[in-house]
Computed example of a mutant assay.
Amino acid sequence: MSDPRDVTILGEPATSHRPADPGHEGKGEIHLVHMYPREMSIYGDLGNTRCLAARVRRHGYVPVVHQHHPGQPFPETAHLVVGGGGQDSGQAKVEEDLERHADRLRGLAADGAAMLMVCGMYQLFGNAFVTVEGQTLPGLGILDVTTQGNATRMIGPVVLSTDFGDVVGYENHSGSTTLGAGQTPFGRVRHGSGNNRSDGTEGAVSGHVVGSYLHGPILPANPRLADALIGWAAEQATGRDFQPAELDDEVARQAHARQVSRLLG
Rank of each mutant, 00 (worst) to 15 (best):
D166F: 01
D166P: 09
V168G: 05
G169A: 09
E171D: 02
H173P: 10
H173T: 01
S176W: 13
T177N: 04
T177L: 09
T177A: 05
L179P: 03
L179N: 05
G180M: 13
A181L: 03
G182A: 08
Q183T: 00
Q183S: 09
P185K: 14
F186M: 05
G187P: 09
R188M: 03
R188D: 10
R188V: 13
R190E: 06
R190Q: 11
G192L: 13
G192A: 13
N195E: 14
N196A: 08
N196E: 12
R197H: 06
S198A: 12
G200M: 09
E202F: 07
E202Q: 12
G203M: 14
A204L: 06
A204Q: 04
V205E: 10
V205F: 03
V205Y: 06
V205T: 00
S206D: 15
G207P: 01
V209E: 01
V209P: 11
V210Q: 00
S212R: 00
S212D: 12
Y213E: 10
Y213T: 08
L214Q: 03
P217Y: 14
P217D: 15
I218F: 01
L219G: 12
L219M: 09
P220R: 12
P220A: 13
P220H: 15
A221E: 05
P223K: 01
P223L: 08
R224E: 13
R224K: 10
R224T: 14
L225E: 02
A226N: 02
D227K: 00
A228T: 03
A228W: 11
I230S: 02
G231I: 08
G231S: 02
W232C: 03
W232I: 12
A234E: 00
A237D: 08
T238P: 00
G239N: 06
G239K: 04
G239T: 01
D241S: 15
F242D: 12
F242I: 14
F242P: 09
Q243L: 14
Q243E: 15
P244H: 04
A245C: 09
A245Q: 05
E246F: 10
E246G: 10
E246W: 11
E246Y: 09
L247K: 01
D249H: 14
V251Q: 07
A252T: 07
